[in-house]
């Protein structure tokens, strides 16, 4: 008697599928062990040095040829602006903004610059299904508008709420975000425009590994001045832009609850089973179905044979 799927073949197929799935999974975990490009550049932002002059905002606007601002860049009334209950944030007209934080008990405020942190393992890149994002060996997370379909998944994936959508050109989708001045500066080894403009050297540009040493030196040699933490050294698996602060980071608007591992690690188990589901489940459940209906099928077959007789 010949059945369409023998038990032996069914087990064989199942085993082969499991092996394939295991191999696929191993590949994924290799990608997750990636610790960033060793020669990648970064910026160390020292909040204790920033005086809120907004030179970085002005320089960014000029370098990236963004639309003119609504208020001059030396107008400091913007620090009092609150939109939807939040301080200013990046949008399609500005890749970076500086916000003021009044710290209770301190006689002068702290200023915090925000822009893309250029993660070592960017969640925007992981989430993008058309591969519009690239992490370059120089450390920048850049974006290709030509392949972007405007799904805006990256905006949801980003743990720092940085990519913004150009709603004024919805039919020609364009995500607007800091690109570390990659095209105009970084790829030639030059610092981004904001760093060059900063009078206080609150922004220190250099190889990421060396910036960590500089940050540790500042913390060690001026006891009591800094929080003993470099924000971005480990957050979301490490970021190219890192921060030093004299007050706890949550007091100056940082999300201190982001995971210490890349966002990719949170979804890689799920992503690992996708190929298995797609390749094995159809065969597996087709097999179950055939086994479950075998008796009916055999019965039908013998009835047919009887009728033929």
């Amino acid at each position: 008697m010949k059945s369409p799927l023998s038990r032996r073949n069914f087990i064989k197929g199942g085993l082969a599928g499991t092996v394939a799935a295991t191999l696929l999974k191993e590949k994924k975990s290799q990608a997750a062990d990636f610790e960033g490009y060793p020669q990648g550049m970064g910026v160390l932002v020292d909040l204790t040095r920033c005086v809120g002059c907004r030179s970085c905002e002005a320089a960014c606007n000029q370098e990236q040829k963004l639309p003119p601002p609504e208020k001059p860049f030396n107008d400091f009334s913007v620090f009092d602006e609150i939109e939807h209950g939040q301080k200013r944030r990046t949008d399609e007209t500005r890749y970076t903004v500086v916000n003021r934080y009044d710290i209770p008990g301190q006689d002068h405020p702290l200023f915090r610059k925000i822009q893309c942190n250029h993660c070592q393992e960017p969640a925007c890149l992981t989430s993008c299904f058309v591969n519009a994002y690239t992490k370059t060996p120089e450390g920048a997370v850049i974006y290709n508008a030509k392949v972007c379909v405007g799904c805006r998944t990256c905006m949801i994936a980003c743990p720092f709420y940085i990519p913004t959508f150009k709603y004024s050109s919805a039919f020609n989708p364009r995500i607007m975000k800091c690109v570390f001045c990659y095209d105009t500066r970084l790829k030639d080894g030059k610092p981004p425009a904001c760093v060059e403009a900063c009078p206080q050297e609150a922004l220190t540009f250099g190889r990421r590994s060396e910036l960590i040493k500089i940050g540790q030196q500042r913390i060690r040699e001026t006891p009591g001045k800094y929080e003993e933490h470099i924000y971005g050294e480990h957050e979301v698996g490490g970021t190219a832009w890192m921060y030093l602060s004299s007050v706890p980071f949550d007091k100056v608007g940082f999300d201190t609850h982001v995971p210490k591992e890349p966002i990719l690690n949170l979804v890689k188990d799920f992503l690992g089973i996708v190929p298995m589901v797609l390749t094995i489940w159809p065969a597996l459940f087709a097999g179950f179905h055939l086994l479950a209906t075998r008796k009916d099928w055999l019965k039908g077959k013998t009835e047919d044979e009887h009728e033929e007789e």
């Binding site: 000029q62 001059p72 860049f73 107008d75």
Partner: peptide, 8 residues
């Protein structure tokens, strides 16, 4: 040049 960059 500064006024141009700062839009002021």
């Amino acid at each position: 040049a500064g006024e141009r960059m700062f839009h002021t």
